[in-house]
Design a protein around this nucleic acid. Structure first.
Length: 560
RNA sequence: UGGCCUAUGGUGUAAUUGGUAACACAGCUGGUUUUGGUCCAGUCGUUCUAGGUUCGAGUCCUAGUAGGCCAACCA
């Protein structure tokens, strides 16, 4: 059937092998299991695309399950933000689940385990338990409570649940093997006492299950066939399977955990804990700051869902260490925006041009295309007059042939307008150019069909009529960190590499049609880059974010 | 020093499971262009090391080397 030799990642190979081994396709089910204690970031996007992509490929359901077993850090607000991000990325979950939905079932199973002699209440301090844990090369020793009677265990565990004990006084532990090579198998904690309201169960519970106990059993309850997580959980697999062994019945799907490498993005950090630190220490203005590698940050920055999905697809899924250059993400932003973003003109670093032979007070509305690569995008009109702004970079008094922008005595085309020639310029006492005097060729009007309008001129500049220009706040972003891998240094922390110049706010002069641009609207400022309207934007103060600059070959030439 | 995982161009990921090492990005050279954008064409460069099995090894075997992970009442 699949004639196209499409390449599969190793997770897809595992699923294919299971299918070939007789695993019923109908039984396939996946899940995306975020903890609602922060915002989703670009690393999660990879996991989302993997799990939901698998769902799409095999026409299998994908659950959204909030792993909400720790009320200390989790909040409803994060649940809402996570749902919004997944929907925005374009995915639909089958059912919305919460690990907290299973607290009763988990509790009942735990009671059964106690009765089977597979779990016990330990009443030591965490320090004591840690000291008994041993090291990777030395076995641990048994807790003095390890052989507490079943009756006592049952009684104390129930009292723990009922809130009769203080936090830290008791825990429920699985009775496995204190000498295991795998530290996680040395009688792991299943429950701790926590007198804290939960965002869903409120104060119903005074004990909360630990990740290892809750996660696999939740997969089992939901009949998830393939439970995919990141590499740091590889050692947890043995425990995952052990816990499943305690509860599985033969006729139900037994989930299978497999691990893949988290994706690292250059010049940023991809860790909720570290991103939280940036937010709390006001390095950025919140989780959705356009410099953040969060889904919400990228959205506000102007990235499209397709760009992020294509990026995730391109970087793939594997098991080795990786550091993906952020320029690849930027490539995908440009690739998608190039197709969908209408072109407009805006000058961000203006210098005034006076067209000396253009009639005083005259104004023309010139026709220009919205997207040269898309005929369906249509045209619009932009006003032209005697005084215009061009980019300061686009003029030099003298320059060599490689510089095909405006220079004294030279000609350029003003995009969709006329060919002009620089005659002279005036400067302030410091030598800064204040104004450029040009003449224009009245017969060279773009689209007029005249011989003069067809003339080949090497350079074409964007411009804005001074009288009609719309002032706007422009936010230019740069990488948040100066180091490509800020959190992998032995001697320094990631906070030592913060880029102080990651945000630059300037005033730009835009074509007047942009007055009605809506929040979130994306566009290309011709010759400059892709921009979008920030949520901070108001009628009185338009605010634009630069998503990403255009590829800049000229900058490369200059650097040589 | 115990266990687990990984090693393919500058980066990321593939390789019909033992049969021509490919794709994308980046780089470089041209062409087109009223965006130094887009688009088009061409080009550069790779299987950690050493042995072994085989007609044939990125893939299998042996021994190394390097990197990551593992001892929270976090997930």
């Amino acid at each position: 059937m699949s004639e196209t030799a499409e390449s599969l990642n190793f997770i897809e190979h595992i699923v294919e092998e299971d299918l070939q081994g007789g695993y019923p396709k109908k039984a396939l089910r996946f899940r995306f299991p975020p903890e609602p204690n922060g915002y989703l970031h670009i690393g999660h996007a990879s996991s989302i695309c993997l799990n939901f992509g698998l769902g799409l490929r095999y026409n299998a359901p994908v659950n959204l399950r909030f792993d909400d077993t720790n009320p200390i850090k989790e909040e409803k607000a994060f649940v809402d933000a996570i749902k919004k991000d997944i929907e925005w990325l374009g995915y639909k979950w089958d059912t919305e689940r919460y690990a907290s939905d299973y607290f009763q079932q988990l509790y009942d199973w735990a009671v059964e385990m106690i009765m089977d002699g597979k779990a016990y209440v330990d009443s030591q301090s965490s320090e004591e338990m840690a000291s008994q844990k041993g090291t990777p090369t030395e076995a641990g020793v048994d807790s003095p409570y390890r052989n507490r009677s079943i009756a006592d265990n049952l009684e104390i565990f129930e009292a723990m649940k009922n809130g009769d004990y203080q936090e830290g006084s008791h825990v429920l532990r699985a009775k496995i093997d204190m000498a295991s090579q795998n530290m996680l198998m040395r009688d792991p904690i299943m429950y701790r006492v926590l007198h804290k309201a939960h965002h869903r169960t409120n104060t119903d519970w005074c004990i909360y299950p630990m990740y290892d106990w809750a996660h696999g059993e939740s997969d089992y309850i939901e009949e998830v066939s393939h439970s995919l997580c990141t590499l740091e959980f590889a050692m947890h697999r043995e425990l995952y399977n052990w816990f499943l062994d305690q509860v599985v019945v033969s006729d139900k799907v037994r989930p299978k955990q497999r691990e893949f490498a988290r994706r690292n993005l250059s010049h940023t950090v991809v860790s909720k804990r570290k991103l939280l630190q940036l937010v709390e220490q006001d390095v950025v203005n919140g989780w959705d700051d356009p410099r953040m590698p969060t889904i919400s940050g990228l959205r506000r920055r102007g990235y499209s869902p397709a760009a992020i999905r294509n990026f995730a697809d391109t970087i793939g899924i594997a098991k080795r260490e990786n550091l993906i250059d952020v320029s690849l993400l930027e490539f995908h932003a440009r690739e998608d925006l190039n197709k969908i973003a209408p072109r407009v003109m805006g000058v961000l670093d203006p210098v005034k041009v006076i067209i000396t032979n253009y009639p005083e007070g005259k104004e023309e509305w010139l026709e220009t295309e919205n997207n040269p690569g898309d005929e369906l995008a249509g045209n619009r009109k932009v006003p032209f007059s005697k005084e215009i702004y061009i980019e300061r970079d686009d003029f030099k008094e003298e320059a060599n042939r490689k510089y095909f922008r405006l220079k004294l005595g030279g000609e350029v085309r003003l995009k969709s307008a006329y060919i002009i020639k620089a005659e002279s310029c005036t400067k302030d006492i410091d030598g800064n150019i204040m104004e450029i005097q040009c003449t224009y060729d009245p017969k060279s009007k773009s689209g007029s069909g005249t011989e003069e309008s067809m003339r080949k001129v090497k350079g074409t500049l964007h411009w804005v009529s001074v009288a009609h220009a719309l002032k706007a706040e422009i936010r230019l972003y740069d990488r948040l960190f100066t180091d490509e891998s800020p959190d992998t240094h032995k001697d320094k922390g990631f906070m030592d590499f913060i880029n102080d110049e990651s945000l630059q706010v300037i005033t730009g002069y835009l074509e007047p049609g942009l007055k009605d641009a809506k929040v979130g609207e994306q566009m290309q400022f011709q010759r400059l880059g892709y921009f979008c309207v920030d949520p901070d934007s108001t009628n009185d103060n338009l605010v634009f974010n630069r998503t990403v600059g255009l590829r800049d070959t000229w900058a490369k030439i200059q650097n040589k």
